[in-house]
């Protein structure tokens, strides 16, 4: 296409303004503002907010990383073998089922998991119906780290399987044929061929899931009760919502930006190598 004329160029710029303004006003400016607010208390530049975060929430930083790590381990511990198996042995039913969580909103996942994993939740009802649990059993999963990481894994598994299946399908059939020629079974084909060849895509899926889990808010909000360690985003929400303390809330936010950036950095460093 011939080069655009100056007037036309200007018109395209004008037409792009509303969308850009929305992102600027609704995201860019608040993002900068939150960084500024995290260093400000009563109009003075200070590190007091971060001191408070260190004093009150340092254990929650650890807890958040632990929950995200456990969620990640569950997601990929199940996702990699499952995607590999489905790459080698196609199953339409299994692939359809795995897509379902993609279309279930985060809040709904949180609520569904809360009633599913409750001490006398619907999981227990199901196990009882199958004769796997006695009537007086109770489960204590829903409110702890395990329940949270299970819920996060449930939601993220769908996207991870989708990404991994795409990557595994990109691996040429010839390599798999060769591996089979040497007597490799399903397990060996997955670990010795599919996983190494799809490593960059797996890395991307790990980073995407990790940042999303570290910053997860609606699932923990639906599942957590008042006491015990909390996810960082819950701390942030209460700090802002109940204490009206945007300074400390923003400092928690900056910690979460750094955690997310750290995950992305390791990924990029991995690619560069």
């Amino acid at each position: 296409m011939n080069a655009a004329r100056p007037v036309e160029q200007a018109l395209w710029w004008l037409a792009a303004i509303p969308a850009t303004m929305v992102i600027f006003v609704g995201f860019g400016l608040p993002l900068v503002q939150s960084v500024v607010a995290s260093f400000t208390r009563d109009g003075v530049l200070t590190l007091a907010n971060y001191e408070l975060v260190y004093r009150l929430y340092r254990q929650d930083v650890v807890y958040t990383v632990q929950v995200a790590a456990a969620g990640l381990a569950l997601t990929f511990g199940i996702g990699i073998p499952l995607s590999g198996y489905l790459r080698l042995h196609h199953s339409q039913t299994a692939e359809f089922l795995l897509k379902v969580p993609l279309f279930v909103p985060f809040v709904v996942v949180g609520h569904a998991m809360r009633i599913f994993l409750a001490p006398r939740g619907t999981l227990l009802v199901g196990l009882h119906a199958l004769g796997l649990a006695s009537p007086d059993t109770t489960l204590a999963i829903s409110e702890g780290a395990l329940g949270l990481s299970m819920a996060l894994a449930w939601k993220h598994l769908a996207l991870v399987v989708l990404l991994l299946m795409g990557a595994f399908r990109g691996v040429s059939e010839e390599y798999l044929e060769a591996a089979r020629g040497f007597g490799a079974g399903t397990f060996r084909q997955i670990w010795a061929v599919l996983v190494p060849m799809a490593a960059p895509s797996i890395g991307l899926a790990v980073v995407l899931s990790l940042t999303s889990m570290l910053a997860s808010f609606s699932i923990p909000l639906m599942m957590t009760k008042g006491s015990g360690p909390q996810m960082l985003m819950i701390d942030l929400y209460y700090r802002y919502g109940q204490h009206g303390d945007i300074g400390v809330a923003s400092a928690i936010g900056v910690v979460s930006y750094l955690l997310a950036a750290g995950a992305a950095y390791y990924y990029l460093k991995g690619i560069a190598r």
Partner: peptide, 8 residues
């Protein structure tokens, strides 16, 4: 992460 930005 959306929450801190949306709070701000």
């Amino acid at each position: 992460p959306q929450l801190p930005v949306f709070a701000s």
